[in-house]
Design a binder for these strands. Structure first.
Lengths: 328, 328
DNA sequence: GCGCTCTACTAGCGCGCTCTAGTTGCGGTA
DNA sequence: TACCGCAACTAGAGCGCGCTAGTAGAGCGC
């Protein structure tokens, strides 16, 4: 920076002004500063910036690197953050690297606030974390944790899916649940309620699962091994689960939707693909991402505001994996 | 830090020593420092650290957020880097965010070196980037760019796949290529060479594609629309392409491998799933990740060493999507 | 001529840490 | 006793910026 200043023949402070795009420098000088910077290959050092300002203008994001819905969210988080003048740092969670570590890393890099995508940390720990640094939890409800959250109206989405299946004439509808994963409890409850509402309680059945492809495939294997009649419709815990289920069923020669209808949850980009064409509950990933970023920016500006819970509308997208039940 | 020092009754420098785990402090003092730090909720600020040291001990990684093979690599990069005392920062590439931007962001955050996973930046630009900061290119060959690279012996992998198909009796083998994507050119060349070697040049056919599911599905639609006989085997550009191809074929009622055999490339985790069970060319993602990180660490230590190209062995993994050809 | 405002610019401290070049005190050795 | 070496510790500069408080000079009205 000093080199740039020297080259242009001004002070460091002026160069600083120019790079921060603040008033106080003539257009001509700005030009010359940028010119000199380009020639010298100068770029502002964000570590020093962070140190000198007292806020870093960096938001951290934790995600599960294998989750396509997280990928959808991240793709939208970047432009929104950029527009608001924030930079994004990503830290991945994986089997070998738990969420706490990701969070620590991001905090160490001076993130001012964190977006947690579908965190599996327990409520109490999240509340405690929220006390230390602004966080927004995406895709999971956290009652009374005192942190901002954004998630879909799980129950509504499930209800729509169940209404759709019931209207098609399905009675034997099974649910593969998401275990302890974010949103799973709500979806499970809504499934049971919908079965009751449609007078199908006797057909209600929940298989334990999670949010991975493997859990869908496992459920399929289990059902096929039972030698009993397959349900005519299956509500999967999410799209990944539905994907696993779909392929396992098809490999076993079970036609979808001819013999079994399948509904997913998330409407992640994989569901759109013409060759998957999954009926699923749409979560508005764009709005979730936008809200998450804005919530953090607002909270940074005013840390004492009441924590907000944004519940986005869910909407069933009917595609090719659902049809009237087979003749039994 | 000053607070911690004051609380223990020592200088800041000593606290610094303790946190860097350097010799020069008694065990008793270390204890007391950690104790005080815990009580005060102190954590070292990495921005300041980076500024004061002249190296940051941070490596940057660029990846395509939707690519499962990249996910595999990242999962291994974390522990290796940690073991060597480096921290990882991830920057995602997406349609809305090109590679240059990711690289800029990482450099701005003082990464000492970058791992580029399957970069699509052109060779010359990579060479130039390599002149400014140590980089290692993963999954792509860059002849004479003067940067470290690690990739699979593409030709060998393709050759094995082709030998396998030929041995099964396939003659009409089609290739959906990866367009300009990393490794695509080599795979395409190897496909042609293998067809020649097996005396099948007249059957050789390459469809233009890329490394996405959609390109596989598109190719399937195109083939099905042609009304001509389908090839008996298809070599996809990578696993994602194979996934798209597989599902599109199955949805059209084409049995895999009964009517058409399919081979992927990458052996990303999706290929393992029991319900996908894809015959594919294994790339050793663990070794790739390890080598990439070590190469950077070595180059940071000695920037002038000769650039290295590590070519990892490729190995065909025969699973369930290949079988002898249908009777024609 | 004076004082005023406004634009364009500058000096220099401080952000939280690392690192070099020390100092202090103590036990061992000739 | 004098000296050395070593463990344990400290003072203070400096990393690259942002920011506050300031100055110099041009333009203007009276």
């Amino acid at each position: 920076m000093a080199d740039v200043a020297a080259r242009v023949g001004v002070s460091r402070a002026l160069v600083s002004l120019v790079f921060r795009d603040e008033p106080g420098a003539s257009n001509q000088t700005r030009e010359r500063v940028f010119q000199a910077a380009a020639e010298l290959g100068y770029r502002p050092d964000s570590a020093a910036r962070v140190l000198a300002r007292n806020h870093s203008r960096v938001l951290g994001v934790t995600l599960t690197v294998r989750n396509p819905f997280h990928a959808d969210l991240v793709e939208r988080i970047y432009p929104v953050a950029e527009q608001l003048g924030y930079d994004i740092l990503i830290s991945a969670t994986a089997p070998s690297r738990d969420e706490r570590k990701s969070v620590e890393a991001l905090m160490g890099h001076r993130c001012e606030a964190l977006v947690l995508l579908g965190p599996d940390t327990e409520d109490a720990a999240l509340a405690e974390l929220g006390g230390r640094i602004p966080i927004v939890v995406v895709g999971r409800r956290i009652p009374e944790a005192g942190v901002d959250t954004v998630h879909t109206a799980e129950a509504k989405g499930v209800r729509q899916a169940m209404d759709h299946l019931a209207e098609l004439g399905h009675r034997s509808i099974l649910h593969i649940d998401g275990g302890n994963a974010p949103g799973a409890k709500e979806r499970r409850g809504a499934y049971r309620a919908a079965m009751r509402k449609h007078g199908l309680s006797e057909h209600a059945r929940v298989l334990r699962g999670d949010h991975t492809e493997e859990s869908g495939a496992r459920a399929a294997r289990l059902l096929l091994a039972e030698q009993a009649e397959l349900p005519t419709a299956i509500l999967a815990s999410n799209d990944r689960c539905a994907m696993g289920l779909l392929d396992a069923l098809r490999r076993a020669g079970v036609e979808v939707p001819g013999q079994v209808s399948v509904v997913g949850y998330d409407d992640s980009h994989v569901a759109h693909f013409s060759h998957i064409d999954l009926t699923t509950v749409h979560q508005d990933s764009d709005r979730m991402a936008e809200y998450a970023v804005r919530a953090l920016v607002n909270r940074i500006a005013d840390p004492n505001q009441q924590p907000q819970e944004l519940v986005l509308d869910a909407k069933l997208i009917v595609r090719g994996t659902t049809a009237p039940p087979r003749n039994q």
